[in-house]
Structures are given as C-alpha cells and as structure tokens.
C-alpha cells in the first residue's frame, strides 16, 4: 500500500535568469511501513523534494506533477488544508533539529501552542503524552518544563524528534538529521527512528541523507537522485550489492574505507561537478561525468527501467528502448 505517490513531480526555483530545475520529473512511491531513503550529493534536489511536500515558499514553485498523500494531492491543497495536514499527518524533523525549538519558550508551551493550532483542547492530555514520549527517548519527563537552552545539543535533538512525532504523523520526513552529528549520536537517532516505526507512532519515514553507509542501516528502499532526476530506486541491500546505474556504482566506490590513506591511494571520487540546473542538457544529466558515456547519452534522456525485482534505474546501458 502506498502512503505517498509522487508522479512526475517538478519543483523549480524562480530566478532572474530563468527557472532552476531542482526537481525535474521525479516519480516514486513511499509504502506504508517502510523507511524510504533518498540519497545524492549536495544540490541534487533531495532537500527541495521533501520540503516541497510540506511548504513551497517563493522562489520555490510547483511546475507540474502530483504528490498524492492519503488520496489528496499535496500540490493542490489550499493553504489552510495544507496547514492542517502538517504535523498531524505529515511531519518533519529538520536538518537544524538542535536549534528548532524557540529558546525562550518552555518545551511544553511550544508543544501546546502547536497542538492547539491543530484543534487539540485538553492541555493536560497533550502534556501527559509529551512527558511519556520524553521518557521513551530516555529524557527526563521534567524536560517538558525546561527551556531548550537548558538542554545539551544531543538532548535538544531528541526533544525535537519527540516534538515532531508527538501527534503520530503517518509520514515523517527526516531531513539530513544525522549530518551534523558524531557517530554515537547518529546511532541514537537511527535507533529512535526505528523505535518510532516499531511503536506505530509513524507509519513511514522518508530519510534524506548524503551518507550511503547510513542508509544501509535504516532504509528498506533507497532512491538515488542526480541533478533533479531519479538515477536508481531499489531495495537498499540490493542497491549496495548490485548497483545498476554508473552513478550509484561510483558513489559506492567513493565511500571512504578504513585503512586506505589519502597519501598512498587517492580517494576515489567522481570526476567533475554536477551540472547547472538552470539549463540542464537534454540528454542524460550524468553524461558529463560518466565513464561509460555514449553518443546517445548526449541526445536522449534515459527512461527509468526495471532491471530487477523492484529495482529501477535510468541508464541507456540497461536497455529500455523507447516505449
């Protein structure tokens, strides 16, 4: 069962030199009960993609496609409808989770302000739930009565995770939540997200990261984005054991390995830089950096084809003649 169906979604940024096509015709599903990983390098559109589901503020705008969430197209909701869905059904743990809570308000006041906006009437019930959840993430229930400034960075991170999931959203977006953390805290975060799923607090999670090694630990399926397009979607284990797209292969090879020293062996990287999204080439977006580039790649955009069970990739090497 799909909780979220994205069909040919296009999210652009308006600039004086024309639209920047940050997300350009992306399609995927997020199924109920799964952790869906989205990976890619900086500027590939992964953050734009997930943020557009929640809030599109100028210069970001919706240029086409649909995002069907529980039967409703998120791109067509009125402002008030969209506001009501946020938090109660669709929530986010932001990249800046450590600084996401207003420093001059008690955590219970922040939560109550938000819950009231979503029609909750019983303050003690909301606060009771907050204390319960804080205890669940191994924070003292007293944290509810504290100001965010009185907590350490790691505690604030966990408190934000509790706040974001308090109203049991169906879909939780975790946007680069582990990027700024040390590995110990990363593990805590991953375990908590896993716990939220097990307890049925959230039905599905979209986990956005640039760290492929981390996705291996948490994501059931993973999507690799490159320059605003889908490169590959596959169950995570299969993606790592047998990547189909040249970009995925190169990404996996470029993961730093213990015991390899930069002085002796150069780190494996992908030569070149991502293309400009202001005026992308009409062919495959990866051809400028691809070691297997063919003439066809420059002219024709490769379609997403099924290369294995539940495994899709977009590359001319994998066949997929024009349907």
């Amino acid at each position: 069962m799909s909780l979220l169906e994205i069909r040919d979604l296009k999210i652009y940024y308006r600039t004086p030199r024309g639209p920047v096509k940050a997300v350009d015709g992306v399609s995927f599903d997020v199924r109920e009960g799964e952790v869906f990983g989205i990976a890619g390098e900086s500027g590939c559109g992964k953050s734009t993609l997930v943020h557009s589901l929640i809030l599109r503020k100028p210069p970001m705008f919706h240029a086409g496609g649909e995002a069907i969430f529980k039967g409703k197209d998120l791109m067509k909701l009125s402002e008030e409808e969209a506001r009501k869905i946020r938090y109660t059904e669709l929530s986010i743990i932001p990249q800046y989770a450590m600084n996401a809570l207003n420093p001059t308000k008690k955590i219970k006041d922040i939560v109550w302000d938000l819950a009231r906006e979503h029609g909750y009437e019983d303050r003690s019930e909301v606060e009771g739930l907050l204390r319960e959840r804080l205890a669940m993430v191994k924070l003292s229930p007293k944290v509810a009565d504290m100001y965010p400034v009185e907590l350490s960075g790691g505690m604030r991170q966990r408190a934000t995770m509790v706040v974001s999931t308090l109203l049991n959203p169906d879909l939780l977006i975790a946007d680069e939540v582990t990027s700024a953390l040390d590995v110990t805290t990363q593990r805590v975060v991953i375990e908590l997200l896993h716990h939220f799923m097990e307890e049925g607090i959230v039905k599905s999670i979209i986990f956005v990261t640039h760290d492929l090694a981390l996705l291996d630990k948490i994501a059931d399926r993973t999507m690799i984005l490159y320059a605003g397009k889908v490169a590959e979607i596959a169950p995570t284990e299969e993606m790592i054991s047998s990547p189909a797209h040249p970009y995925t292969k190169l990404l996996l090879e470029s993961l730093p390995k213990i015991g390899v020293r930069y002085k002796e062996t150069k780190l494996n990287g992908i030569p070149g830089y991502p293309i400009s999204l202001l005026n992308p080439p009409k062919g495959c977006r990866f051809y400028t950096r691809c070691p297997y580039v063919m003439d066809r790649c420059r002219e024709e955009e490769p379609p997403l084809v099924e290369v294995g069970d539940d495994h899709y990739a977009a590359c001319h090497l994998l066949g997929g003649e024009n349907q």
Binding site: L55, R86, Y87, A100, N102, T160
Partner: peptide, 9 residues
C-alpha cells in the same frame, strides 16, 4: 525556530 513552527503547521 520560526521555520520549524511553520513546517509543523
């Protein structure tokens, strides 16, 4: 913190 409030509706 304001962006967060906005994201949570």
């Amino acid at each position: 913190y304001v962006r967060y409030l906005e994201a949570l509706g």
